[in-house]
């Protein structure tokens, strides 16, 4: 009975939504209320104002710079929340370490007090989540990773002219870190992109964004008014706004990349960062 009432309520609600949708303006209608007031200004003035052909980027990072700054702060806060909820610093050392010699497959059993071949390339540690060495996955990931990194940097830097920007590029950079962690193991990934590095960069990205805004205030403009930086860059006001957008996009990219790696490290290892996917 209760289930029936829920389904009936949902159907009435969904029917109302579909009924309302009929009153919406048509797709791409130039006379729609949303596209007659502010949109023509952005479309006409984006290139004279900011020198950025991609209107989405100029709105996101310049006209609505505040919004994007606090979005970055939200991402940073999500990373912090994940860190505080999951990270555990209990250093319970196991009694027995198992190390596998990669060339021969011989497994060494090292009890407490024995010498551990830490950092040696010939040995790999075996733990509860250890999976056998997979040549195809490792080689493929090693081959594609440099291209993924280059593409991510391109997406960040080319956001002025094509779809992309700090968020997307940062997520691609973070995904490359995750691919590395999955194809090798979490310990190798945390040795290369350490937790300290991720924490530092996630804060530094937000700081770079906010300090760009404060720098504009020092040059006599409003907060995040990049046009005030024109004497610093030695360009026109539009050029300075374009460069300011690039700087804040780099900040967003740094923050997002570090937060994605940090969240993955914490989720996949239960916050211990010693063993994981």
């Amino acid at each position: 009975m209760k289930k029936f009432a829920v389904i009936l309520g949902l159907m009435i609600w969904g029917g109302l939504l579909i009924y309302i949708a009929d009153d919406f303006p048509g797709w791409g209608d130039p006379q729609a209320p949303a596209s007659v007031n502010l949109s023509p200004y952005y479309i006409e003035q984006s290139i004279p104002d900011t020198d950025v052909p991609n209107v989405v980027t100029s709105i996101l990072a310049d006209y609505r710079g505040f919004d994007t700054m606090f979005e970055t702060a939200v991402i940073f806060t999500a990373g912090l929340a994940c860190l505080f909820l999951l990270r555990s610093y209990s250093t319970k050392e196991p009694d027995v370490y198992l190390y596998r010699h990669t060339a021969t497959g011989v497994i060494l059993r090292i009890e407490k007090g024995g010498t551990i071949p830490v950092g040696s390339a010939d040995f790999e540690r075996i733990d509860a989540t250890w999976v056998p060495h997979d040549l195809i996955i490792k080689t493929t990931c090693r081959l594609i990773l440099p291209f993924v990194f280059i593409f991510a940097l391109y997406v960040i830097a080319h956001g002025h002219h094509s779809p992309g920007g700090g968020f997307q590029g940062g997520v691609i950079l973070g995904a490359a870190t995750i691919i590395f962690a999955i194809s090798y193991n979490l310990r190798t990934a945390t040795r290369n992109i350490t937790e300290r590095f991720a924490a530092f960069f996630s804060a530094a990205g937000v700081l770079l964004y906010a300090s760009t805004g404060v720098l504009c205030m020092f040059f006599g403009g409003n907060f995040l008014d990049y046009g005030a930086l024109a004497p610093l860059f030695g360009t026109t006001i539009a050029g300075a706004r374009s460069l300011g957008i690039l700087i804040v996009e780099i900040g967003v990219g740094m923050s997002v990349m570090a937060v994605m790696s940090s969240i993955y490290y914490n989720i996949s290892s239960n916050g211990r960062l010693n063993e994981g996917l």
Binding site: P163, V171, I172, Y264
Partner: peptide, 16 residues
């Protein structure tokens, strides 16, 4: 732009 974000964030990282 939205499609790009959805492809990276929604289909990529959140699935992971």
């Amino acid at each position: 732009d939205v499609a790009f974000t959805e492809a990276t964030v929604g289909a990529g990282v959140s699935t992971v």
